[in-house]
Write a protein that binds this DNA or RNA. Sequence first.
DNA 1: ATCATTGCAAAAGATTTGCAAGGTC
DNA 2: GACCTTGCAAATCTTTTGCAATGAT
Lengths: 167, 167
Amino acid sequence: MDQDYKLNDVKVSLTPEERFEEYLQSKGMRNTQQRRNLMEIVYSRHEHFDADTLIDQLPRKGNTGYVSRPTVYRTLAEFVDAGLLRKFELDGRAVYEHDYGYPQHDHLHCTICDELFEFQSEELIALRRNVAQQHRFRVTSHRLIISGICESCSRTPRRKRRKQDLI
Amino acid sequence: MDQDYKLNDVKVSLTPEERFEEYLQSKGMRNTQQRRNLMEIVYSRHEHFDADTLIDQLPRKGNTGYVSRPTVYRTLAEFVDAGLLRKFELDGRAVYEHDYGYPQHDHLHCTICDELFEFQSEELIALRRNVAQQHRFRVTSHRLIISGICESCSRTPRRKRRKQDLI
DNA sequence: ATCATTGCAAAAGATTTGCAAGGTC
DNA sequence: GACCTTGCAAATCTTTTGCAATGAT
């Protein structure tokens, strides 16, 4: 919670909590216990996650800190809207990652262990601008995922960590 | 149905029908009327489509040429497996496009009219190779979607053609 | 005749919604 | 106190599956 919200050349003046607070105020929304609980878990580590992973990290029903499934989905959408999280689709499910205070990047996706690795490329930004210009297209964002097999899985094949396997 | 299955520098010797026939034979599978029906519709035009769009183009239940929803899904998976179609996800639903006989390309996605525009970029291939090399990653494929607003929608804003709107 | 394939009905998985009860400003 | 938010239950949307009947070779 006391992390430094700078990474590489991206600097930000507000913590994610502060920024969310601003967002809520500007929308006439309220900062509830559930939203604070989720904020804390989401920012406790810098990793890609989906709704179910997040729910698994929450206290179970009946315990303090519990947040219901619909509220998790609703709050994730708010985090995205507030610019705190970025959302994308992988194999038909939604994946979230930190956006606020983190530089633009893309992903390598290992189809064996299901891990996501980040990389940055300025050439991609140039490419994107060129393509858009040729098509007279006004770009708002892009998503590049390179799929394959990561170094570790090339050496020591591991089984894919999948939802079904956890039952 | 009598198209020329060459585009740019990609040449193929078999029609999609022939290639699918080969695939079926090699797998001990049978060429049924349903599969032929779907093949014909899928190759009647070169456009991106999803399962529902395809089903909408089929005759309704009770008419000749009808194919049930489960069979449509099963057959699309076979087309992908046979290398005839490529599949990707957009806004949580599966989108298909011609693969066999068509060159590798990526997409611009207009978030207003929901249209997909294709583009090719050799720099992207080089970029992909470089990134993979740096991460000792063995690439099998990639997917780049640039989102924004197309030329036509910048001039004459149109409403998004969405499933819900058709009811 | 054998065995793949189909259509039906139902299930499954992820996400969303209506609404009454409760919480925040 | 006004009204935003929550949790529940149920709905939705897309895709998948079990299975008996049908069809292809």
